[in-house]
Design a protein around this nucleic acid. Structure first.
Lengths: 178, 178
DNA sequence: GTGCACACTTTGCCCTATGCAAATATAAGA
DNA sequence: TCTTATATTTGCATAGGGCAAAGTGTGCAC
């Protein structure tokens, strides 16, 4: 908005600014949606616990070290989180018969239910929003977001981003993208 | 998916599904961007601490209870976080001369710098992505996101969302939208 | 086949974040 | 003044997190 009437020396710069602004606004919005979807289960699990459940759901049963890596936390942290989730019956833990130094961790039914509940709520919330848009707006949104996602794929994310990402992830991504 | 070749009774349903998917993908992406922007300061402040700094920046100097409410945490939690941030020189704390039971909390220069750094990184990252898009794609993105944001404004966010939101917020929104 | 190196998990120790309840200190009002 | 309400702090408990060390199995090399 308001970027159409003044001819800047570099038209792209002004556009990029408006786009950045719009993207950041949308970002806030989406985080709020995630937060609300999570609210329903926050009396049963903490956010880190929920993230752990999501990882188990996504990457299937596995051993503790792998889980810890996926979460970006120290194995000792994972051990203790599993202790608690096992105690609350959301995670199943049994020694791997083929390799007794490994534990096999998996979601219980109750664990699956929690993840599904949040995912469903989130889809529903987003669905509710897009349902208020005009059909043409919807397809425009799909195209625009697709272009955005593609543009981000070949973004270098600054040289060393790859290193920092797993480290920061655990603390920086509480919105548990499901 | 797989709903495209079969004429459903409600054509909008398939659209909504595709849009939901695109939105969720974008959401993950944006969270990753936030996470990376945050990574640069994670050796100086924890994520909750950073959120506190952002609140002080956004809502200006204020007293502890207000800050705690903005963050959605208990005042006692805020007290102790401030203790640590004061110790590390990121927050200034002084008794309000007009009301001795109140503390006035404000960012120090160092505190401001941290917030600015993250904000700048985030803008830069988003800017880098959009700069890879075609100009027409950029304006399409602005329009689409604007429509999306507007659609979300008059979304009821399910009846009781208002109640849960502040509660869940503290734990559910670590990505500190700046 | 015995032993050494490596992998997986757990435990100990320390810190931050968090909530609840109780204690303190200060204002404001009746 | 005495009481009530507000602001902050402190005590106590739990969860999340890291690092280092211990414990336990596997597997390979010699």
């Amino acid at each position: 908005m308001a970027t159409g009437d003044r001819a800047g020396p570099e038209p792209g710069a002004r556009d990029a600014d408006a786009v950045t602004k719009a993207v950041m606004t949308a970002s806030r919005l989406l985080v709020a949606v995630s937060a609300r979807s999570l609210a329903a289960v926050q009396d049963q699990v903490t956010l880190p616990q929920f993230r752990l459940l999501v990882m188990l759901e996504q990457h299937g049963p596995g051993k503790l070290v792998g889980l810890a890596q996926q979460l970006g936390v120290n194995p000792s942290t994972a051990t203790r989180m599993i202790d608690r989730l096992y105690a609350s019956g959301l995670v199943d833990r049994q020694a791997n018969p083929d390799n007794r130094r490994e534990n096999l961790l998996a979601l219980t039914e109750a664990g699956h239910r929690i993840v599904s509940e949040v995912t469903a709520r989130r889809r529903a919330e987003i669905g509710a929003i897009v349902s208020r848009m005009e059909p043409e707006q919807r397809s425009a949104l799909v195209e625009a977001l697709t272009a955005f996602s593609e543009a981000s794929e070949d973004t270098p994310t600054h040289p060393h981003g790859r290193d920092l990402y797993p480290l920061g992830w655990s603390e920086a991504t509480p919105s548990v993208e499901t």
